[in-house]
Design a protein around this nucleic acid. Structure first.
Lengths: 330, 330
DNA sequence: TTTAGCATTCAAAACGATTGAGTGCTAAAG
DNA sequence: CTTTAGCACTCAATCGTTTTGAATGCTAAA
């Protein structure tokens, strides 16, 4: 009970908690609280900043708090009204909804929120197209069964032969239709070696290479990151050095190393449990969702270890569940 | 001469400059320097932070320094070797080259660099396309004569009628081919009112609206921003409040208000000369370039007023010139 | 016009005393 | 055996004072 109160209070105030406040809450004397706190400290759940300071939760303390208190909360959804509204709007595109949810999440928690979309590696090619735009240039288009489009501009040295191009495209369409993105490169290379394509394509090298480049754009995961500045106003960032390091880490995209892509369900990494050294005062919460095509997407929240776990963890679960639903509906 | 030295030294050290250092440089006594400095201060070119401090340049001082000393520099290109290399690589796409130049610029100057691309408002429609991806969904594609592609997913309530769709697309292509992006919306609305299209299109409303949305994506200027974190390590950002404000300004995209899109050639806005209040200790340098289609693009540099103008200004001119060349070559 | 000399100014650093929230421990009370 | 009152102790934080030193302005002599 004392541990719970220490964590709750510390989350609220960001100040070490002394025996006096707790004694008032519990209607016991401060001495009693001090005795108990001494024991909790010996066990490693709370710690002091100096000999005569109040106590604050240790990582172990947070861990215990989360495992026993937060994880057993019923799937709370009260207070999530704003979030529920987002998912009711059937008109909007899925990616838009996710983006708004992430924005709202970072606002509501004063943390940095990240969405790392599924990498579309399992999407299939729906259509391939080549549109000439001048005598030497053309645009390559690739469209997947989920409606993602990627394009790449190519330049061809010789005059473009429209007749031949149409042939090329027809062939590529026939060849690649319904091929998973991840297999495209392999398949293209194979066919060039083993089928009659070799002779057919005058601009073979240029075109095939450009296509592979266009396909590789799908593999680059789509991400969205928001709310750095919210976080900066938290008292743990009063230290200018930490603040600079944090921004630098974000700008170098190192923050994505924090995201636990492999984990199932929800994962909470507290302080030194995560690998990026400049972020070892932070907690990273990652919640994954499944898409229909076998990929996984994640939403993550990065904030000070002192974050409102009781509210945030159910919220993250809630969001992941609803995003997953968006995929199932499609 | 003294003004020049004060500015040069201050740019190097970020510390107010006293008479002693200058007297050593000039081989006169410190008293002489003090007399002269007194005059410069009366004229408003330099200022003190307190009665017994050294002097630092005022905004007026910087202004004078730039007008008389920097602007008259011959078009220096020495030391730009790294930058020249970028433009020699003929294989890369234009946008990629610009991006790399901006990265390098921010690195070399420890400032935040921004590229605000031409908004493609003058590009013309090359081709319009609609690709069905399921029984109720399709992708709209718009391709410009410069090879930009935008796409938008649409959902249609009724079963898609392929026959009819082909007709729609043919019609739209005929209608919009070579229309400048800026005129598309107008033209579509007009034709719907006045021609036989009205009856022809069963899915008229959905499709036309979606097209207009897709076109509007072109109008959103493409931007690229890099190097926030470089800047944060400059001594002027030792103040944590300023640092937070700066990051917030960037995250809210307010930084783009600083960019002088309308100006010709190079524009230097020092301190309070720019409008965003949280940035009035900064200088914003903007250099514009013309694209062949009548649009203008800009590259900008945001940094502390104490920035190395002698190097930066020629560099910005150099970059804008070369980017313009990229457009001319195409 | 330049310089030497001197009194003056003021931010920043160094120092010391005070404060107060908090602790641990002990001995008495329940 | 548990709780509480009491007391000595600790230490970050605050505040005021002093010291220091880099700079100034001004004056009178060179």
């Amino acid at each position: 009970m004392i541990l719970k109160l220490v964590v709750d209070e510390y989350i609220k105030t960001a100040e070490p908690i002394g025996s006096k406040i707790l004694s008032e809450m519990l209607n016991v004397s401060s001495a009693t609280v001090r005795n108990e706190m001494g024991i909790l400290e010996d066990l490693g759940y709370i710690e002091k900043t100096h000999t005569s300071s109040g106590r604050m939760p240790s990582e172990k303390g947070y861990r215990y708090y989360i495992e026993t208190i937060v994880k057993n909360l019923d799937e709370e959804t009260e207070g999530f009204f704003e979030f529920e509204k987002l998912f009711l709007n059937k008109e909007q595109e899925r990616d838009e909804i996710i983006k708004e949810a992430i924005d709202l999440l970072s606002q509501a928690t004063n943390c940095t929120a990240i969405s790392l979309g599924p990498n579309a590696f399992h999407s299939k090619v729906k259509k391939v197209q080549l549109v000439p735009i001048s005598s030497h240039q053309a645009i390559i288009l690739v469209i997947t069964n989920f409606g993602h489009v990627e394009s790449k501009q190519i330049t061809i040295q010789d005059e473009i032969d429209t007749e031949e191009l149409i042939k090329v495209i027809d062939l590529l369409n026939e060849l690649l239709m319904d091929t998973p993105i991840s297999k495209v490169s392999e398949k293209l290379h194979y066919e060039i070696q083993h089928s009659h394509i070799k002779e057919l394509l005058k601009y073979r090298d240029t075109i095939v290479e450009s296509f592979i480049e266009a396909f590789s754009k799908f593999a680059q995961s789509k991400y969205y990151l928001t709310g750095q500045s919210n976080m900066l106003y938290q008292p743990e960032f009063n230290d200018i050095k930490k603040l600079r390091e944090f921004i630098t880490t974000i700008e170098n995209n190192e923050i994505f190393k924090l995201v636990e892509v492999d984990s199932e369900g929800i994962s909470v990494k507290i302080g030194t449990e995560n690998q990026v050294t400049t972020m070892q005062d932070c907690t990273v919460i990652t919640s994954t969702y499944d898409t229909v095509d076998g990929d996984k997407g994640t939403i993550s929240l990065v904030g000070p270890t002192r974050m409102d776990y009781r509210r945030v963890i159910p919220l993250m679960k809630f969001l992941a569940k609803h995003i997953q639903k968006l995929y199932e509906e499609e």
